[in-house]
Amino acid sequence: MYDVPAPMDTNGRVDETCQAAARDDGSGSPIALPSRRTVLAGMVSVIAATLIPRASAEVAPNAGRDTFLALSAIIAGPRAVDGPLARRLFDALQEDDPSFAASAGALLDLVNEQHLDSSGLQQALDATHPELAALPRRVASAWFMGIVGKDEKARCVAYESALGSVIVADRLRPPTYAYGPYASWAAQPA
């Protein structure tokens, strides 16, 4: 059985910040919160994907993406749902490093073996599997910052849809976007 968390925190309550962002406050944020149906579908496809043997380094593309989604749920949280953005990020990660899908598969195996969750993940990898230690940061940079690759190879794949912007979309606009008409920032954020 694969432990893919639903959009709840580890105590089983629905994450309040997710709920807060789901209120229609006119911010017009285009990213809807994941419905349980979507996550369940993801879980099912992950389970289906795991029936494919992982022994070979070549993973079927769908399985690679599903693995990526499963890891994303842990690393980037419940907002990291399947969709056009997820496909873009996965394709970019794979292009930046052709072995990404395979490494992601190895990481997911480890996660399930050791029952790792988001809070213990990096520590565990640093301690016991340094060859995978860089992977969560790459997934996190992709989802939270929309950036894939490093140094000269770094590429922006998303900006407004990056989760770092989405998480605060009820209060802020990403830089370069107008907050509102003149003086609209003087009021207390509500």
Partner: peptide, 14 residues
């Protein structure tokens, strides 16, 4: 920049 990344305008349609 003004009309929003999704065409939604600014908060409260200012």
């Amino acid at each position: 920049t003004c009309h929003g990344a999704s065409g939604q305008g600014s908060f409260e349609g200012g």
